[in-house]
Design a binder for these strands. Sequence first.
DNA 1: AGCATAAGTTTGACGACTCAAACTCTAGGA
DNA 2: TCCTAGAGTTTGAGTCGTCAAACTTATGCT
Lengths: 225, 225
Amino acid sequence: MLATETVENYLKAIYLLQREAAADEAPMGQIAAALGVTTGTATSMVKKLVAAKLARHERFGGVRLTTKGTRAALDILRRHRLVETFLVDTLGLDWSVVHDEAERLEHAISPMVLDALDRHLGRPAFDPHGDPIPRADGALQESEAMPMSELGSGDAARLVRVLDQRGESLRFLRASGLKVGATLRVVAIEPGAGVMRIRPDGGSVVSMSTTAASRVLVRLTRGRH
Amino acid sequence: MLATETVENYLKAIYLLQREAAADEAPMGQIAAALGVTTGTATSMVKKLVAAKLARHERFGGVRLTTKGTRAALDILRRHRLVETFLVDTLGLDWSVVHDEAERLEHAISPMVLDALDRHLGRPAFDPHGDPIPRADGALQESEAMPMSELGSGDAARLVRVLDQRGESLRFLRASGLKVGATLRVVAIEPGAGVMRIRPDGGSVVSMSTTAASRVLVRLTRGRH
DNA sequence: AGCATAAGTTTGACGACTCAAACTCTAGGA
DNA sequence: TCCTAGAGTTTGAGTCGTCAAACTTATGCT
Ligand SMILES: [Mn+2]
Ligand SMILES: [Mn+2]
Ligand SMILES: [Mn+2]
Ligand SMILES: [Mn+2]
């Protein structure tokens, strides 16, 4: 709204880093890395966010969004994820390319266009990667899910979310028939090799490292319990 | 592409002013007015365009795009008009609001998204206002049309383009049933009052000044001639 | 405890875009 | 032809976001 495009990018980056950090604080260096700027630049931008009451920060410490900043970040995240959903569902683009496109489009979407888009898409709750789409009022519901790496041999599950969103990973998953909503079964696990073998319904068996599998979230449909 | 958002706006404004100017040159003052900046600002930006070989200009004279500048302007115009078409056809927004939205979105559309959008819309040749959409190769075909003010009493015609795109005008036309593609008949002309009375098919008679009518372009379907 | 290293901060500078205000040119009427 | 009103240009300054490089602080290893 009132924030500049750059400020919007900082808010979104801080929000996401804060969620995944243990201390619920975004380290300055990671903010800089996320935005592709030097840490000096990040430091001075964060000062501006603090002055605008969007974030809190003390020298040599981490960064934390205020309520106002969090609200703004969720608004941007909503735009980002709705745009991604549009690009995949309506325009048919591949889920491995939509993030970068949305990164620019998210700043050009007015509330009016956003709502029309939301209605056109049927008010979706999740984006193509299974990430939850914040609602207009800022509500955000994470889905219940477990890492695929925790499944046992013979378990059946449904893929609900992909955390590693590098193009390379997304293309591998798509090529293997592993997209959000797909059902699959664990064919075998080889703990020594750190590899598990998965068969998506209607596809052929693929091998994945347990590390890679830990970044794919699933919901158990039929398992050892 | 390589141009900044500001440069893109200047190129588009100069292109449009050049088309409608007698001398095929865009006056500096009108460039400034179109962009909402002072003439001093426009002067210095035009210098940059000249340095980038996008425009030609001599002191105290008008501005003229080079071939390269024209090509870039047509590319932006294509993005603008395709976005407008999308906002109306796919999202159902009113034709009186889409210009301002497209003014921002046009800068965030990559070639990939543009092509997907074009395909999704069925490669349209005209935008919601009847303005021709430049093709990917830069080709632009204006449609044959005459001002509605030149119709005679009893003439039947099809509305093909609206030149006055101020929100107020567009809302009046829509409320009257006068949208692109609509057929209509001239019920009466009162030259003394400078007013003509029009009946859109399936609607009721409306009065328009001949000045307003001159900015609505039509194609004669059945007339005196 | 002492210190090297990683992390963060500060400073000075720059490019892009803008304005206000002083200045210069041009074209058309007296 | 001369002069002036309107159009265009220049200059100086400011904001925003950025970098490089010098500097400061915190941490954890010996
Ligand atoms: Mn972004
Ligand atoms: Mn996503
Ligand atoms: Mn624009
Ligand atoms: Mn248009």
